[in-house]
């Protein structure tokens, strides 16, 4: 199985630890992981701002980088969803279609493709799981609270395999953190209030760490936690799943 690692631009630049953990975790699980080195960005920042028509360059580059793999795995629900829904390439549409079918967010890849049933990981902390909207309602990696349908959560399923980890219950299991790409600056007041309230829910329920399958949400919440000088930290789900203190 030949897997390409898709590391979103802001993860590459600001949260390399999450990408390293993703790579190591996949390798531990026996996956042959490749990192196409000319990758940049999925184009979402432009598209969500109304400039999807400017993403052709990004899209073509993406197709060049990620064609020919069995799977493409990404430690971000949001970027994965963007590729799944919006990757088009006028000249190489067939390759784009293949990529859209083969791109997976990390936790769904672990659960649905690798069918991971146990992990050698420990993380002796109380953890709050933040459901990123794009992972949740776009990729459906967890059940959405609005729907009348059976509950499940791929990230929680994996986190429950981690020794010592205790998932805390939240007041609002899937309210948005308010990041929203350029929304976080264009609508600064509402965005930061949303982030503040989301963080508060985790703190109130005793979380020592807030985790998520999406770093954009975590980056937002981290900004708020650090402004509050909180002891609560954010950590990408890959870093927990890859964490072993016996190393």
């Amino acid at each position: 199985m030949k897997v390409a690692l898709f590391v979103p631009c802001y993860v590459d630049q600001f949260y390399p630890g999450a990408a390293i953990a993703t790579l190591q975790l996949l390798e531990k699980l026996g996956v042959d992981v490749h990192y196409p080195k000319n990758q940049t960005c999925c184009g979402q920042p432009m598209a969500n701002s109304g400039y999807e028509h400017l993403t052709t360059g990004c899209n073509n580059l993406f197709v060049d980088n990620f064609s020919g793999y069995d799977y493409i795995v990404c430690p971000s629900g949001s970027c994965t969803l963007h590729i799944k829904e919006h990757l088009h390439s006028p000249e190489k549409e067939e390759q784009a279609i293949e990529i859209r079918k083969r791109v997976y967010e990390l936790t769904e890849f672990l659960v649905d493709v690798l069918k991971v049933e146990n992990l050698q990981a420990n993380f002796p902390y109380k953890v709050g799981l933040h459901n990123s909207c794009h992972g949740l309602r776009g990729l459906k990696i967890s059940q959405m609270s609005e729907l009348v349908a059976p509950a499940f959560s791929k990230p929680a399923h994996l986190l429950n395999m981690v020794q010592g980890l205790e998932l805390v219950q939240l007041g609002r299991q899937d309210d948005c953190c308010g990041f929203g790409g350029t929304f976080c600056v264009a609508e600064e007041a509402v965005s930061s209030k949303m982030g503040k309230d989301r963080v508060e829910d985790h703190i109130e329920h005793g979380a020592e760490y807030i985790t998520s399958a999406d770093l954009s949400c975590l980056m937002h919440m981290e900004g708020i936690l650090r402004r509050q000088n909180s002891n609560v930290k954010v950590i990408h789900v890959a870093e927990i799943l890859n964490h072993s203190s016996h190393e």
Binding site: V7, V11, D12, Q13, F14, Y15, P16, G17, A19, I20, L23, Y35, K37, T182, C184, V185, A186, E188, S192, G195, K196, M219, H220, E222, G223, I224, R226, R227
Partner: peptide
């Protein structure tokens, strides 16, 4: 400040910037 509009630093009003790491994932990988 973070993001496109850096004239008035809207991110920083209520939020800290992410800490910049020493190297990117791409650099680490190479």
């Amino acid at each position: 400040p973070f993001a496109v509009n850096n004239q008035q630093n809207p991110w920083f009003k209520h939020r800290e910037m992410p800490k910049a790491p020493e190297q990117s994932f791409g650099e680490w990988y190479s």
